[in-house]
Design a protein around this nucleic acid. Structure first.
Length: 490
DNA sequence: TGAAATGTTGGGGCG
DNA sequence: ACGCCCCAACATTTC
């Protein structure tokens, strides 16, 4: 018998390990396990919302396996002893898995490889979820890319190397001689393995449970819907948080219910080139670039595994951040007094997702206005985002803090009022997520403290009572952070 | 995938 | 008619 180790790749389409298993003569079981080394379980990277998503994925995947007639084994806490038992009991000959480059997974993979090696079990690490192979993806001088644009250009030039997604493994005919009933191993998937159940009242995930679809079928549906309806005006619509202008597949890609290659090829299929060989439709190009940003993020984390903890510009680590717990709490709760920030943070808490434009604004605000180190914001995002992804998250936060590869320069400070007025001009995003400000007109919706008393009164707003006064003054905070950075240059 | 400060220009009011 | 000033509007520099 063979075994397929599934981890962050709970899908049937474009799953190289599963595909290899169905094409092997032996029957196989699919194993999913957790233990203290797995990313979702490490205390360092608490991923609460993502764990909720994962639980739903597992239930869905288990059902699909049952329909398919392939045994799916879930192990709550995999120990070396337990693994040995499984290997012996099922007479496992070969193990297939998709290779992950996430630092935490790498360590688990090494453990598994060495354990299985001792058992004389052959392991087959299949190509991971990336678009291209990275060791040889280098600049002309042989360096690791540290700037996005040349990375993108080189990838685009080599796009013929991006393999076509493998078909749904269930469509490959194979003879399975066992079913789950024949096995007497594994645990039942329990909610409490993934998140704390809430005894009474509204649980934190209630909005997600009502509105968020999860699983491979849902992922493919989201992608298809975006390609049909959203792609043709992606380039401009993607920047307006009140508009459903983005694909929303980030969580499917991050959690592995959709492969990046599937998303890539679904766009590439309709791409046309002009006479110069450029992509005709800039919407197509923009979306492919965004997918490429994900590739870039994983590539950077692969080459700089420390970058999820430490600033790549090492002198940032010497900065003396204020790190005020009070300010941090106000930020997480969406109580900073800056409407666009509060709207974003509340959208994040409620839905497990935040519009990308707003992620940049709240990130800049945390680091540069509240004077809090990026790692604190990164940890909060990992814990609250359904699409929490170590590579993307680290890249994004280092970018906004100005200490990563291809980062925004330190002096680039987003103005939360101007950003609000530019990207949420009528204030409808703010009004949706900050209902206290529902009746405020668009002139003051991004700066309620400047509204005259009669306007505030008419809008039923009492600043400091039912909506906070600004936690900090932006222009003062800007001056302060710039002088802090200046001290660094000396 | 910025914003603020500073510099330049040109039209119009006005003595 | 002319020079002067003011100040948008735009451009450039700086953080």
């Amino acid at each position: 018998m063979n075994l397929v180790w599934i981890k962050n790749d709970l899908r049937f389409e474009d799953n190289p390990a599963l595909y290899a298993a169905v094409n092997d003569k032996n029957p196989f079981v699919i194993l999913y396990f957790e233990n203290e080394s797995m990313p979702l379980k490490t205390r360092k990277n608490k991923m609460g919302a993502a764990s909720w998503f994962l639980y739903q994925q597992l239930i869905d995947f288990q059902n699909e396996c049952q329909k398919w007639g392939v045994p799916f084994v879930y192990i709550r806490e995999l120990t070396p002893k337990k693994l040995t038992e499984i290997i012996t009991q099922l007479k496992i000959e070969k193990v297939f898995y998709n290779e992950s480059i996430c630092p935490t997974y790498i360590s688990v993979q090494k453990q598994i490889d060495s354990l299985l090696g001792k058992q004389k079990v052959q392991t087959f690490a299949k190509v991971g979820p990336n678009l291209i192979e990275w060791e040889n993806h280098r600049t002309q001088t042989g360096q690791v890319f540290q700037v996005f644009t040349p990375f993108w250009k080189a990838l685009w030039k080599n796009r013929h190397l991006v393999s076509v997604p493998l078909q749904d493994a269930r469509k490959v005919s194979h003879r399975q001689k066992i079913t789950s009933d024949d096995l007497n191993i594994g645990d039942s998937i329990s909610e409490s393995d993934f998140y704390d159940s809430v005894p009474a009242g509204q649980p934190w995930y209630s909005h997600m449970a009502e509105t968020q679809t999860v699983g491979e079928r849902a992922a493919l549906k989201r992608l298809k819907k975006f390609i049909q309806n959203g792609l043709s005006h992606y380039k401009t619509a993607r920047d307006i948080p009140s508009v459903e202008g983005t694909s929303r597949i980030s969580m499917d890609l991050a959690r592995g219910s959709l492969s990046l290659r599937t998303a890539w090829h679904s766009v590439l299929d309709s791409v046309e080139l002009n006479s110069k060989g450029e992509i005709k439709d800039s919407n197509h190009e923009q979306f492919l670039k965004e997918l490429c940003w994900r590739e870039f993020a994983t590539y950077v984390l692969y080459h700089f595994p420390d970058s999820c903890e430490k600033s790549l510009k090492l002198n940032y680590e010497k900065l003396d951040w204020e790190n005020s717990p009070k300010k941090f709490k106000a930020w997480t709760r969406g109580q900073t007094g800056y409407p666009i920030i509060d709207a974003g943070m509340r959208q994040l808490w409620t839905t497990g997702w935040m519009h990308n434009r707003v992620r940049m604004i709240v990130g800049s605000f945390l680091v540069k206005d509240l004077n809090i180190e990026w790692q604190k914001g990164a940890a909060w995002f990992l814990d609250t985002l359904l699409d929490a992804d170590l590579a993307n998250n680290s890249l994004g936060w280092q970018w906004v803090a100005g200490c990563g590869v291809d980062a925004a320069p330190y002096f680039r400070v987003f103005n939360p009022i101007l950003q609000g007025e530019k990207f949420d001009p009528d204030g409808s995003y703010v009004r949706h997520w900050v209902p206290e400000l529902k009746h405020l007109n668009k002139e003051f919706i991004h700066k309620p403290w400047e509204a005259p008393d009669n306007v505030l009164k008419a809008a039923k707003i009492e600043l400091g009572k039912n909506y906070p006064l600004p936690l900090v003054d932006h222009s003062t905070a800007r001056e302060e952070i710039l002088s802090l950075f200046k001290s660094l240059k000396k």
